[in-house]
Simulated scan of single mutants.
Amino acid sequence: EFQNKVYVAHECIRNFFNASLPFTNFDVIAIPDLPTYRYMSQYGMLIVRESELQTNGISEIMREIMYQWIGTFITPDWWTEAYINKALISFLASELVIEINGEAEFNGKYPMTILYSLYYELGKRYPHSRITGMKQELNSHKIELTIRMLKHVLGMESFKNGIRKFISDYKNRSFKGSDLWNTLSKQAKIDKTLDKELSILEISESWLKQSRLPIIEITRDYETRTAIIQQKVYLRERPHDVPDQDKMLWWIPLFVIRQDTLNFFNNTYLWMKKIKQIKISNLPPQHEFIIVNPEEIGPFPVNYDEKNWNMLSDFLQTENGTKNIPAYTR
């Protein structure tokens, strides 16, 4: 069974990247009392603690085998790029596991577990409690969720094309984080899924170079069917006491779902381009709600005016509400 999991994972990754590794054999070595780590990856080889051969699931195997491509076939230029390496592996491995067996292995908790841990920690006055290891882990999570957001923005096909181009261009070479973002940008513009004047590098850096996350606040004008959308730093405690919070701005994709359509497969969005406030129009009538950031596409919470919250609450207490609004959005 373990051999079959390795084969399935290897083939899924190879097909996704459209790239084969430059060797004919991939060896798995089981060691009864492997200390410290459950898995150790070497080029063309996976060393595993023997007890792991009996575990259920494929996610850990998927991550470890993906290191053969991202980490060895292409290699981070310096240790500072290791966060992007880890985040990209974690996201792609999770996507492939979900493709294989749906949400069953993650019990419907991916990516919400890491998302809410970010909300909790980065909303503090002093994030990470000054613990370096925690900071590094949270940085990796934030990069992973940024990659997930970009996948939704660009669409899966364009995103996949960009990743394949990235693997092809940097095989047997080292890469910097900017190489990933620039490759995704170039491919998205070829695929016409990103406006020519925009840059994935600039968008991603607004998320990765700031130590916080934003919150979006929406106030609707029901008479004119417009809304004011503002962004600010998300803080759970002592919001008046965080330096430079007024200078923190992000590139935020705004996906808006209307009650009159409830189309969660609509990829139409608009950018909030590192500005504090924008105004949107052509919203539904005053008796219908809107949902922004469905399925938590971007790593940011949303707060509505009281009337929109009440309409959402009332709808979610109906059978249609629980049937038509996906779980992550609820």
Rank of each mutant, 00 (worst) to 15 (best):
I147M: 06
Q136M: 10
I147Y: 02
F166Y: 05
L150P: 06
R173Q: 14
D179L: 04
S129M: 08
S117V: 00
E157R: 03
H141P: 06
M149W: 03
G133Y: 05
L150K: 00
N172R: 00
G177Q: 06
S168C: 08
M156L: 13
S158M: 02
K124C: 11
L154D: 05
S168V: 14
F166V: 07
W181R: 01
I163T: 03
G108E: 09
D179V: 00
I167H: 01
E157D: 06
L122M: 13
I147F: 09
Y116I: 12
E157F: 03
K109H: 14
I131T: 11
K151W: 04
K171T: 12
K171N: 12
K176W: 10
R125H: 11
L115A: 10
F166T: 06
N172W: 01
H141D: 05
F166A: 03
K176M: 15
G162E: 03
D169I: 09
M112F: 10
L154W: 04
Y126R: 12
N107W: 04
S117N: 13
K165C: 09
N139T: 11
K151I: 01
N139W: 08
M149H: 00
Y120N: 15
M149A: 04
M112K: 11
L115M: 15
L180I: 03
G162F: 06
M156F: 13
K124Q: 14
Y120Q: 15
K171P: 03
R164T: 03
M134G: 10
R164E: 04
K109Q: 15
P111V: 09
S174E: 04
G177L: 00
L138F: 14
